[in-house]
């Protein structure tokens, strides 16, 4: 009996603490996209740091904005968003600056993803707010059986040789950016005076394409059924993989004008409860297992290694907010409806 007593005493002291420990267990709250924090990988992080990770998935930018701003960023510790959205959140004061030096694995990243001043949207007043995580560029997919030479330029989309065999994307913003690129202009800053000629360029594109697609599956079936030669891959490598899986003999190029690309980054919310834990997550995300899962499971690119067989990875143009999204949309609707030039803009 005397032997048991110390045990009982220690139990009596420890037991009341146990629930307290459980309740005090920290939770890291992520707001991310499908595929960015798969359960098996999250579990590794939880075990390593002895914390719980709550992942909230979003499907589009609008939902992400809604959720993050709901409680002034207080509901989440970390978010994953593209550079244009990060820019918006910095403007709104929903993020807090971070120090890349405290995240050891940033040294594993390719140089162009550490060259923060040159990545648009993620810095302000010399402070960095986000760490690049994954990206996809919008290259050109071409049918190797129809094109002996890979297309070098965006201008190929307008090539009359491919009339009726080109697929372009149905999206106002990208369409105008593409036209601006082809014309040698800044894709995100189109001057008012340039709009008429870019509109005409897009009408010309319309007359050259088979059609404009919206979903990757749609593009794949059109590609198959209509002997498409050239495709503007709005969904990037994901579409390349899809077409190759279908057995198409296709190639992928980054045109010499550069390819539009979105870049998703991790950023720490203003309401983050534990800065060190949030940094630990970003560090974890930059380890090979997490970053490779992006490539292997999602068909995306990571920031640690260059994608295989791709020339021109240095010609990526990170998406930025455009000068006037509404104007682009208004004009694009009319172009898409089949209006004939010239398009008079009513003020």
């Amino acid at each position: 009996m005397t032997r048991i007593r110390p045990l009982l005493v220690s139990l009596a002291i420890l037991l009341p603490l146990a629930p307290g420990l459980a309740a005090g267990a920290e939770a890291l709250r992520l707001l991310a996209w499908p595929g960015y924090a798969d359960a098996d990988l999250v579990e590794r992080f939880e075990q390593r740091h002895g914390v719980a990770v709550e992942v909230t998935l979003v499907g589009n930018d609008d939902v992400l904005r809604e959720k993050l701003s709901a409680n002034n960023g207080g509901d989440y510790d970390l978010i994953a968003a593209n550079t244009a959205e990060i820019h918006h959140y910095i403007e709104q004061g929903l993020l807090q600056p971070l120090q890349p030096a405290r995240i050891a694995n940033t040294t594993r990243q390719l140089w162009r993803f550490r060259d923060y001043p040159r990545i648009p949207g993620i810095s302000r007043d010399g402070k960095v707010y986000a760490i690049p995580y994954t990206y996809a560029e919008m290259g050109l997919i071409y049918d190797r059986t129809q094109l002996s030479e890979p297309p070098r330029s965006i201008a190929s989309l307008w090539d009359p040789r491919f009339q009726g065999r080109v697929l372009a994307f149905n999206g106002s913003s990208h369409a105008f950016s593409l036209a601006a690129q082809a014309a040698g202009l800044d894709p995100f800053r189109i001057e008012a005076a340039d709009f008429p000629r870019l509109t005409e360029r897009l009408i010309a594109l319309r007359r050259n394409v088979l059609t404009f697609y919206a979903q990757p599956e749609e593009a794949a079936s059109l590609f198959r059924e209509h002997r498409v030669a050239l495709l503007f891959a709005n969904y990037g490598r994901q579409q390349l993989k899809q077409l190759r899986d279908q057995g198409a003999d296709v190639g992928y190029v980054i045109p010499r004008e550069g390819a539009l690309a979105w870049l998703d980054c991790w950023a720490i919310s203003r309401g983050a409860r534990n800065m060190a834990l949030a940094e630990a997550w970003i560090d974890f995300a930059l380890e090979p297992p997490m970053s490779r899962a992006l490539v292997e499971r999602q068909g995306l690119s990571n920031t640690l290694e260059e994608p295989e067989n791709l020339e021109g990875a240095d010609r990526l143009i990170w998406l930025r907010p455009v000068e006037d999204a509404e104007r682009r949309a208004r004009l694009w609707e009319r172009i898409l409806s089949g209006e004939r030039p010239p398009l008079e803009e009513t003020p």
């Binding site: 319309r206 007359r207 088979l210 404009f212 209509h226 898409l336 409806s337 089949g338 209006e339 004939r340």
Partner: peptide
């Protein structure tokens, strides 16, 4: 009247 060659219902 508009041009509709890029619509699937036509092509």
């Amino acid at each position: 009247l508009q041009e509709k060659s890029h619509y699937a219902y036509l092509f």
